[in-house]
Design a protein around this nucleic acid. Structure first.
Lengths: 164, 164
DNA sequence: ACGATTCGGTTCGATGAATGAACTCCTTGG
DNA sequence: CCAAGGAGTTCATTCATCGAACCGAATCGT
């Protein structure tokens, strides 16, 4: 994966994780899958990624069981969905330390509270699953004009498939 | 970083995070820094990484403020230390889903309880900082023979500098 | 029924990064 | 003064990525 050949020599589960999700583009593909992107051409236009690379990454994610292929749709498996805490934690770190404006805000749909860095809803005092979250565009959302970005700027339940 | 040129076109804090820590080897370097590795040659022997790549990664991590250079030591900054939840969450995901045996176990030093996937100590019912954790070798620890691996197999307080 | 378009890829040449070996510079030790 | 180790840099080879072009199947319009 991401490590030259593979991180075979490493006694570490982190290395194994990186073999699966550590290559260039892979985590962004997974993020998009959480956002509801499912089709090849939607990933393509939203990520602005070379077709050959997208094809290779989707195949390897299906092979490792992070995504499943359902017709022409690529959907997160249970295992894939459990990457949400990792994805969210990393995104939150960047938001808090890289002085980037928020581009997307995640609210617990049931109560409207923004989830914390650790993925808990302060109001409900519990972890919320990604499908309990609603995405809203934040102030830092740039004006990307591709159809997927436009759709994602309106409030949207996470994991709900988008249709262009 | 990890994204060809950069993920400039992405309205996303995750993309920004990946520009800083998304390249090959980078997260493993950071993991080692949490383990107490500080010197160039120790990273080199423990990660089995090309010297040129290690040099480039360390420099860029210093530039972005994840590491600070203190003499010949590379140490995590506050910002770098706050990557611990992200690193741990990802490692836990792999442990839980990639059927890898545990190689390292993290215990809350104060009470001896293993921390959960979300980084909380079940006994103390709170988040624990990395410097409150003690590393122990797990059953999956392979018999790597480099001096750094040997030192890391004995119980060790996280972030405590190792000396070969 | 038929051509045009869209979708979901694959192929391929050019470019850029990763690899590993060799080399340099600096400091420490005897 | 010489030897050795640490911390890099340089460089030629190999490998991955990029982006444009191509291909085949399904759908649409007439």
């Amino acid at each position: 994966m991401a490590l030259g050949k593979d991180y075979a020599a490493q006694d570490c589960s982190l290395a194994r994780a990186l073999e699966v999700v550590g290559e260039r583009w892979t985590l962004l593909i997974i993020r998009d899958a959480f956002y509801g992107v499912r089709r090849f051409s939607d990933f393509l236009v939203h990520l602005d990624i070379p077709r050959a690379v997208l094809s290779a990454r989707l195949q390897s994610l299906v092979e490792t069981g992070v995504l499943a292929k359902d017709g022409h749709d690529y959907v997160l498996t249970e295992m894939g969905k459990e990457l949400w805490p990792a994805v969210h934690t990393l995104a939150r770190w960047a938001e808090d330390h890289l002085s980037s404006e928020q581009c997307r805000i995640f609210l617990h749909a049931a109560c409207g509270t923004r989830i914390g860095p650790d993925g808990t809803c302060a109001a409900c005092e519990r972890h919320v699953r990604p499908d309990e979250l609603e995405m809203h565009a934040g102030p830092g959302a740039r004006r990307r004009t591709d159809p997927v970005s436009v759709i994602l700027r309106s409030p949207h339940r996470m994991l709900d498939p988008i249709r262009t």
